[in-house]
Simulated scan of single mutants.
Amino acid sequence: MQAVRAFRGGERGLGSPGVVDLPLDLLRSDMFMTMRPVPDERIVVIAGTVWPPLPRAD
């Protein structure tokens, strides 16, 4: 949530609000496509690979 506030406040150059939503969108897509809980391994990949660069993106 802090990244969203920073984006709205102009503190970070994240490109667009869609970029901030990307990790949750990936999880939601996995849930709807498989109709099963997202495996822990997939959450680790999203949280460890996709999310960390976003708050620092300029």
Rank of each mutant, 00 (worst) to 15 (best):
A47E: 02
D25R: 11
T49P: 00
R12H: 02
G13P: 01
I46Y: 04
G13H: 06
V38I: 09
P17E: 04
V4N: 09
E11R: 10
E11T: 02
E11D: 04
R28V: 11
A57T: 11
V4F: 13
L24W: 02
F32D: 01
R56T: 15
P53L: 13
V20W: 09
A47F: 06
S29Y: 09
D58H: 12
F7I: 00
R5I: 04
G15W: 06
P39M: 15
T49L: 13
D21C: 06
L27H: 01
P52C: 01
S29T: 13
F7Q: 00
W51K: 06
G15E: 13
L26D: 03
G48L: 06
A57L: 15
A6R: 06
P37H: 09
G13N: 10
V20R: 08
I46P: 06
A3C: 10
R42L: 14
V44G: 13
R42M: 13
G15V: 11
V45D: 13
E11Q: 06
F7V: 01
I46A: 04
L14D: 07
P53A: 13
G9H: 07
T49R: 14
D30R: 15
S16N: 02
F7E: 01
F32R: 04
D30V: 13
G48F: 10
T49W: 09
D21K: 11
I43G: 11
R56V: 12
S16I: 01
G18P: 12
E11M: 01
D21N: 09
W51M: 12
G13Y: 02
M33Y: 03
G15C: 07
M31A: 14
R12A: 10
E11P: 00
E11C: 01
L27T: 06
P37Q: 10
R12C: 00
G9M: 06
M33Q: 06
P52A: 00
E41L: 14
P23V: 02
T34I: 04
D25E: 08
R28I: 03
G15L: 08
V50D: 02
V38T: 15
G9Q: 12
D58M: 05
D21E: 08
S29H: 10
R36S: 07
R36L: 04
V19L: 09
P55G: 06
I46D: 04
F7L: 05
R5L: 05
P55I: 08
V50P: 03
G9I: 05
G18D: 11
V4Q: 11
V45M: 15
V44Q: 15
G13R: 07
G48T: 09
S29M: 04
R8K: 14
A47R: 11
R8G: 09
R28S: 12
L14W: 05
S29W: 05
L54H: 10
G10L: 03
G9K: 14
D58C: 07
D58V: 03
V20F: 15
R42N: 07
P17V: 05
D25C: 10
P37Y: 09
